[in-house]
């Protein structure tokens, strides 16, 4: 009898290790009553909530998380717990990066002169390669320099009457 009890203990202790556990990855993920966007939203999960996937249906998964059950979109789940942004900008300071890009820029120009790339003007017609724009490395830096916190984004969305 005790051996059976111990076997059950072993089985149920080890079981959770193999359950299909995943995490939600959107800021907030709606749980739906059915696997469709038009069905009732029954609850919401915050990013990084652990969920157990019970079954799948097309691009939807039926999950449970604590007392909450229902359907969420598979695209908003991951088997890896969200741990912030991945960045490739942190390994060098901006100045050295910009210097590196200045050198890269001259390569692009040279490549275009050799006919490496085709280009189009604003009306979609081909242009001779020598009219290729000179890539300005500062453009990518400018693009990457726009910093907005999550709070700023949420405030912006709420001001627009969104997130309701």
């Amino acid at each position: 009898m005790k051996i059976r009890l111990l076997s059950f203990l072993i089985f149920f202790s080890v079981m959770p290790l193999f359950a299909q556990t995943a995490y939600t990855t959107s800021l907030k993920t709606a749980i739906y009553s059915e696997p469709s966007l038009g069905s009732e939203k029954v609850a919401q999960l915050t990013r990084g909530t652990a969920i157990t996937i019970k079954k799948t249906h097309n691009k939807w998964v039926y999950i449970s998380s604590g007392s909450k059950n229902g359907w969420i979109q598979k695209a908003f789940t991951s088997t890896v717990k969200p741990k912030g942004k991945v960045s490739i900008l942190g390994n060098a300071n901006r100045t050295s990066r910009m210097k590196a890009r200045e050198r890269a820029s001259s390569d692009v120009t040279a490549a275009s002169a050799r006919g490496f790339m085709q280009t189009e003007n604003s009306k979609g017609r081909s242009r001779p390669n020598q009219e290729m724009l000179k890539f300005d490395p500062a453009d990518i830096d400018k693009m990457e320099s726009v910093t907005l916190s999550e709070d700023e984004l949420i405030t912006f969305l709420r001001q627009g009457g969104l997130l309701e």
Binding site: S26, S78, I154, F156
Partner: peptide, 18 residues
């Protein structure tokens, strides 16, 4: 763009729009 991306499921990415 980033407002929409908050609800698009890939929190590991920073989206840049130009």
């Amino acid at each position: 763009g980033r407002g929409v991306a908050l609800f698009a499921g890939r929190s590991e990415l920073t989206y840049y729009f130009a």
